[in-house]
């Protein structure tokens, strides 16, 4: 479904991605783990068009998408829930969701998906008329994910959904990631919480200084010594 081939990204003089190779198949949850600054978010940003790769290709469902503008990429079926959530604090919960559906014009379909999202996140329905800035961190994360789902993506990019959240909320968020996947959306998940990420994912990639250093089934990675030492706290 998604294939990154020899992907390079530069931030000025910094060579952030140095030939990333990664593949996501239809229906999977794939996780990309690594430490701070390894290039996890950069990879997602390159896929969604926020960054222009300096070399390499990104193919989505067989079509090259590298270098396309973000609003074009959304239209093709990839939604990105960014790091730090990026909810519009000045809009209500419902308006945030409407922004998520910006590229669509099928009113009935949007209403239906809105219902689905409220089904996944009942907390959001209770607060639909509230400004998003008044939500708690966990609720904002739910909103960011719900908003991305309203684009009706076939591939959902999630960047650090557990960042800064209390352990109980993290549990809820990861359960919802499973639910979203079960409803038919393929997921590429970037996480620092490698333990949780490998628990929900089918496959995983480990990235270090802009290069993929390990790729395997999530269970195998979770059991491997290298990963345990570096990312799972021994």
């Amino acid at each position: 479904m998604l294939r990154l081939n020899d992907l390079h990204v530069h931030y000025g003089a910094v060579h952030a991605l140095q030939g990333v190779e990664l593949e996501v198949n239809q229906g999977e949850i794939v996780t990309l783990i690594g430490s701070n600054g390894a290039g996890k978010s950069t990879t997602l940003r390159a896929i969604s068009g926020m960054l222009r790769p300096s070399r390499g290709t990104i193919d989505f469902e067989g079509k090259p998408i590298a270098g396309l503008a973000p609003h074009v990429v959304v239209g093709l079926g990839i939604a990105h829930s960014p790091e730090g959530r990026g909810v519009f604090a000045n809009l209500t919960v419902e308006e945030n969701l409407q922004v998520g559906a910006y590229t669509r014009s099928d009113k009935a379909g949007i209403a239906e998906d809105m219902k689905k999202v409220y089904g996944l996140f009942p907390r959001l329905e209770e607060r639909r008329r509230q400004l998003a800035g008044t939500l708690s961190g966990g609720e904002q994360q739910m909103l960011a994910m719900g908003r991305a789902l309203l684009a009706r993506p076939r591939l959902l990019l999630l960047d650090e959904p557990s960042l800064g959240l209390a352990p109980q909320i993290v549990k809820v968020i990861f359960q919802i990631i499973r639910d979203i996947n079960a409803l038919g959306t393929t997921i590429l998940l970037v996480e620092q919480n490698a333990h949780k990420a490998l628990e929900v994912a089918n496959r995983g990639y480990v990235i270090e200084v802009g290069k993929i250093v390990l790729a395997d089934d999530a269970k195998v990675l979770a059991a491997s010594d290298e990963v345990r030492k570096a990312y799972l706290g021994g």
Partner: peptide, 24 residues
């Protein structure tokens, strides 16, 4: 209107607005 919603979204965060498919 949808245009107004887009304007408010862009005024809060241009990058995320683009990510949501708004032609900034």
């Amino acid at each position: 209107t949808k245009l107004g919603l887009a304007m408010r979204a862009v005024s809060y965060d241009t990058k995320v607005a683009a990510l949501m498919g708004i032609p900034v």
